Simulated scan of single mutants.
Amino acid sequence: MSLSPGPAARDGEVAARFTGRTVTGVRALSGALTEVRLDDGRIVVVKRADGPDAVRAEAAGLRWLASADAVRIPVVHGHDAHRMVVDRVMEGRPGRRAALRFGRELAALHTAGAPAFGAPPPGGPVEAYIGLAPMRNVTGDDWPGWYAEHRVLPYLRTAVDDGTVTAGEAGAVERVCERLPELAGPAEPPARLHGDLWNGNVLWGADGHVRLIDPAAHGGHRETDLAMLALFGCPELDAVLAGYQEAAPLAGGWRTRVGVHQLFPLLVHAVLFGRGYAEQALAVARSAR
């Protein structure tokens, strides 16, 4: 077929190269996503990114999560410096049965483990991303210290530099970081995290199985993924948590630690989207017990 010049045409060429199939149609889904139909009936998505580290980080993260054989992950067919080709997910509606299964599968993903807190996926860069924000995958053995130094404080400093948080307000978050050893609960081994587990990255498949997309995968504390699900409103969350608890019960007092784990995504969003998220992060910090 003849494709008009432009990003969609190049996306089709990349999809053909990495799948080994002939392209029969392309359709733009957004500014960064193109749906590509292949001659064998399959549909793939080509995702564009600004830099090679972003593409490499996402592709490595998807493959690392898939290797746990737990939650279903779209197949990565290949990537170059600026484009990645993955299977298209045919979406359905959330339901309790799928949510319970997702909770059990998410527990299995986490318990697949990671070499260390902050460990990047195999083949993934240290200089990675969470959404559009830079995220450094620097390793550590102690979760409270690592979480403060490499997940909370970098975004707090950026928010202060940008004027989104005042220097005086920052003290509330800094005090939580100092108290993390007492607030963190029992020590746990590094979990294999999705890392950006908000509702938009949880796709409820038409076949009744959840797929996860767009990870910021790294080794971390499993409660961080769950806290992000709660922060941004995952459908059927009670059932997801019930399935999770059935497979891998959380340590006592986990509900009191949700806010501590939400500081990371809230500060990332404050850096990206402004004062509203900064106020949420400060409220969480001030209420930490």
Rank of each mutant, 00 (worst) to 15 (best):
R17F: 10
L29C: 12
L156C: 05
L65F: 13
L193P: 09
P5Y: 05
A119M: 12
L272A: 15
A116E: 07
G195V: 13
F18C: 00
P235D: 13
R97Y: 01
R96A: 15
P181M: 12
T19S: 02
V44L: 02
G233M: 06
P189E: 11
H261G: 10
G171S: 04
S2H: 03
G103I: 02
L266Q: 08
T111P: 00
V240Q: 02
P235R: 09
R21F: 14
H79S: 14
G145W: 08
G253W: 03
D80A: 10
D69S: 15
L263Q: 11
A239R: 02
R10H: 13
R286T: 12
V210F: 02
A227N: 01
L183E: 01
W146N: 02
G140F: 08
A230E: 15
L132M: 13
A230H: 13
E105F: 00
G6I: 07
A128I: 02
T224E: 00
S30W: 03
A112F: 07
E188T: 10
H218K: 02
V71T: 11
D11C: 15
R37C: 11
A128G: 14
R48F: 15
G243V: 00
R48H: 11
G140W: 03
L237Q: 14
T166G: 11
V76E: 09
D80R: 12
R101C: 01
G103E: 10
L109W: 03
A242L: 08
H110W: 03
M228H: 10
G41M: 13
A288D: 05
E127Q: 13
R192M: 01
A148H: 06
T34C: 12
P249D: 09
V260K: 03
R179S: 13
F273I: 08
G195H: 09
R222M: 06
G113L: 04
A16M: 04
G124C: 14
K47L: 11
